[in-house]
């Protein structure tokens, strides 16, 4: 899977590339408007991560370029501007998602996964992983052909972990993913502990291997 990251902040770009390259992706970076425009014209990507404010031009113009060429790339806008107008305009032009900075890399990982999945598996929403078979459409999980009864939020939690498999994900990232990122949410993420415990218990009862590891008090990891 090829990803193009258009981001002028070098340090952040480096982090994102580092994080994503560890997964199933190959990530390229464009630091400014012109090189991004060139890359878009020359190559085909599965997903484009687009910053709005760029040296040499506005990211929304690049988005128009992409959509004008009728390319199939999924686009996620990652913007520090966090302005509603940008979000609305971006989504209107044809961006698939909008992620305001600062974000958790795990959240970005999950969004990319979801986007690529939507674009590539036309209609097929079945995701096999280890002993598990996930039906994304119906939000259900089967282990050895046996349905595991998960609540909606347990399923989302599992999806989030799987989207960032083999990565340590902090409780904060999970918490924000599950309860949204409103300005001043009641964000005591202690509930995640018990949620994970329940999930592990249900999966263990169904006979699945134990994929979810706890990393000290720091976070969790779906290891496979």
């Amino acid at each position: 899977m090829k990803i193009l990251l258009i981001e002028d902040e070098k340090e952040l770009a480096e982090s994102i590339v580092h994080y994503l390259n560890g997964s199933d992706y190959r990530c390229e970076v464009a630091f400014d408007f012109n090189s991004a425009s060139e890359k878009i014209a020359l190559y085909q990507y599965d997903c484009v991560l687009l910053d709005i404010s760029l040296p040499g031009g506005n990211g929304l113009a690049l988005l128009r370029e992409l959509k004008g060429k009728n390319k199939k790339e999924g686009v996620i806008i990652i913007s520090a501007k966090n302005s509603l107008d940008d979000k609305i305009e971006g989504l209107e032009i044809g961006a698939d998602d909008y992620l305001p900075k600062p974000f958790h890399l795990a959240e970005l990982g999950a969004r990319i996964k979801a986007l690529i999945r939507r674009n590539n598996f036309d209609g097929s929403n079945i995701l096999p992983i280890g002993d598990l078979i996930l039906d994304i459409e119906n939000k259900s999980v089967k282990v050895f052909d046996q349905k595991v009864e998960l609540t909606k939020s347990e399923f989302e939690l599992l999806m989030f972990l799987i989207s960032n498999k083999n990565k340590v994900i902090s409780k904060d990232a999970i918490g924000e993913h599950l309860s949204g990122d409103d300005a001043d949410r009641f964000s005591d993420f202690d509930f995640i502990c018990s949620r994970i415990k329940n999930l592990k218990k249900k999966l263990a009862e169904s006979g699945s291997s134990d994929y979810i590891k706890t990393v000290y008090g720091l976070g969790y990891k779906f290891e496979i």
Partner: peptide, 28 residues
């Protein structure tokens, strides 16, 4: 926002480096 985003991302990368329990606590 930008430096925050950088900080956050670096911290998340740091988390992937098999930290010891002591380091994990600091990171948390």
């Amino acid at each position: 926002q930008t430096p925050l985003a950088v900080f956050k991302s670096k911290l998340e990368l740091l988390m992937q480096t098999n930290p010891t329990e002591e380091q994990a606590k600091l990171m948390e």
